[in-house]
Design a protein around this nucleic acid. Structure first.
Lengths: 156, 156
DNA sequence: CTGACTGCAAACCCTTTGCACTAAA
DNA sequence: TTTAGTGCAAAGGGTTTGCAGTCAG
């Protein structure tokens, strides 16, 4: 967890649950066992999970829970700002935690697939500079570095 | 074209054709009309094209040329370093020119879909810094900024 | 001639959706 | 009860591949 910056340490999970409940209420949706389970599983999983990943994890404890429900719940998590989709060029959408996480870049290991998150103040400056010089207004940005992580380096 | 840095101005197309021919020879492949046509079209197209994009362009002049051939030829272009795939999170692989192009970042307009390429010396430094502090060896990296371009800003 | 290439259509793989049944509120 | 949710299975949408006929070398 060292790479990940929690801005809130204490009631994070409670906060996040509240946020999710608020979304449900706002859209006249119901809090079902399945949604709660996917939410809880997501909150416990500090990774960049694809729908398949989540489905596999969830299925172990809740074999009856369907793929589509996982898919739809992850969309809801994005809607309320708890999760956000990320793309690493392998045609698979992954979801990462957004709430309470600082903007970060990704270092993606092509050997083991692990993803390191790293925070840098400089990046924001460069982004702003780039936008200014190109007359561009940014909504979001991503910085991804692909290569080999420390562990895999030692192995080879 | 102001955003794009050609390192070679004169014989670029010839160079690129040679590179392609070299690849074919090295792998015992044949230079067919179709491959030549896709290559030439790619060289003329200063854009981030998906297979569909290329197919549409090519089809206008060569209606009999198939989708699979475009697909396979673009792969070949990547193999010999003339093209490289880029991903902008819309589930579609695009191919951009690699040969003679400096490393750049992308500013992607969510209104008109246009992509500005911009070069920055700072980025490379930050990348190196990030890698060093995380004990990571980079093969490649991407910096993509999503937002609204100058033109679309004026419109709204 | 011979081995590689093409174009078609089908297979893949992940994402998304329609629908009849089920369950929150 | 009412209205939304679930799980299944099928549809989408892009990428990739198998194959029989075709062509470059």
């Amino acid at each position: 967890m060292s790479e990940i910056d929690f801005q809130y340490q204490g009631d994070t999970v409670k906060d996040e649950t509240d946020i999710f409940m608020k979304l449900l209420k706002a859209q006249n949706l119901k809090l079902t066992k399945q949604r709660k389970y996917v939410l809880d599983t997501f909150l416990k999983t500090e990774k960049h999970v694809s729908v398949d990943d989540m489905y596999d994890i969830v299925k172990k404890a809740q074999p009856q829970l369907g793929y589509a429900t996982v898919f739809r719940t992850l969309k809801l998590l994005c809607q309320c700002g708890l999760a956000t989709p990320v793309y690493f060029g392998d045609k698979r959408i992954r979801y990462e935690h957004k709430y309470g996480h600082k903007k970060h870049i990704h270092l993606i290991c092509r050997e083991c697939g692990s993803i390191i998150e790293s925070v840098s103040a400089d990046i924001e400056n460069i982004k702003n500079k780039m936008c200014k010089s190109n007359n561009f207004i940014a909504d979001s940005y991503s910085v991804d570095i692909f290569g080999i992580c420390k562990k895999c380096m030692k192995k080879s």
